[in-house]
Amino acid sequence: MTTIELLYIAGCPNSVQALIRLQRAVDNTMHSNTVITSTLIDSAETAGQVLFAGSPTILVDGVDLFPTDGRTSDLACRIYVTPNGMAGAPTQEQIEAALAAHG
């Protein structure tokens, strides 16, 4: 079974939209029993214990769905390159393509 986790920080304006897009992408591309969990990153220590690259980070089986040059222990927002320019979350289409490439 595939494990999908959304890592986010409190007050991140993009985490809810990312979760909605992720759920729709999973519904379109994966088995119906795929579970998405959300994990609040509430300290630099917590961020240092997981593969956190800013909020929101999407992990599939423990691997960043959108790999970057590195992790961060900063409680900060993440920027994604999308077809429409820089954004705080990947598009649903980007998530679907990344899920398809992953599995």
Rank of each mutant, 00 (worst) to 15 (best):
S43F: 08
D64E: 15
S73P: 02
P83S: 06
G48V: 15
G88K: 01
I41W: 05
D69S: 05
S55E: 09
L51H: 14
G54Y: 03
T57F: 03
S73Q: 14
T46A: 15
D74C: 08
N84R: 14
A53Y: 02
L65I: 00
S73M: 11
F52T: 10
G54N: 08
L40H: 05
T39G: 05
I95D: 02
N33S: 15
D64G: 12
T39N: 00
D69Q: 05
L75C: 08
T34K: 11
A44N: 08
S73C: 10
V81Y: 08
S32M: 04
M30E: 10
D74Y: 07
G85C: 09
V81N: 11
D61K: 11
G62P: 13
C77D: 06
L99I: 15
S43D: 07
A44K: 08
I58E: 01
T57N: 02
R78C: 13
G48N: 14
I79L: 12
Q49D: 02
E93H: 13
N33H: 14
T34P: 07
H31L: 15
C77W: 01
A89P: 02
T82N: 04
H31D: 15
D64M: 12
E45R: 04
A47K: 03
P90N: 02
N84C: 14
T37H: 06
A53K: 00
T37P: 01
T91A: 05
L75E: 08
A44R: 08
M30S: 10
T37R: 03
P56I: 02
A89R: 11
T34S: 14
P83L: 07
T82L: 00
V63L: 15
A76H: 06
Y80P: 07
Q49P: 04
G62R: 13
G54L: 08
M30L: 15
A89W: 10
I36L: 00
I58A: 02
S43E: 10
T34G: 12
A44C: 08
V81G: 10
N84D: 15
A47H: 05
Q49Y: 06
S32G: 05
Y80I: 06
N28W: 01
R71K: 06
D42G: 10
T91W: 07
V63P: 11
E93P: 08
T57R: 07
V81M: 13
L75K: 03
N33P: 13
E96C: 09
T29F: 11
G70M: 12
A97H: 00
P90G: 06
D69I: 06
I58N: 04
G62V: 14
M86N: 14
G88Y: 06
A89N: 13
S73D: 13
L51W: 14
A53F: 06
T68E: 00
T72W: 14
A44L: 05
I36Y: 03
G62D: 15
Q94L: 12
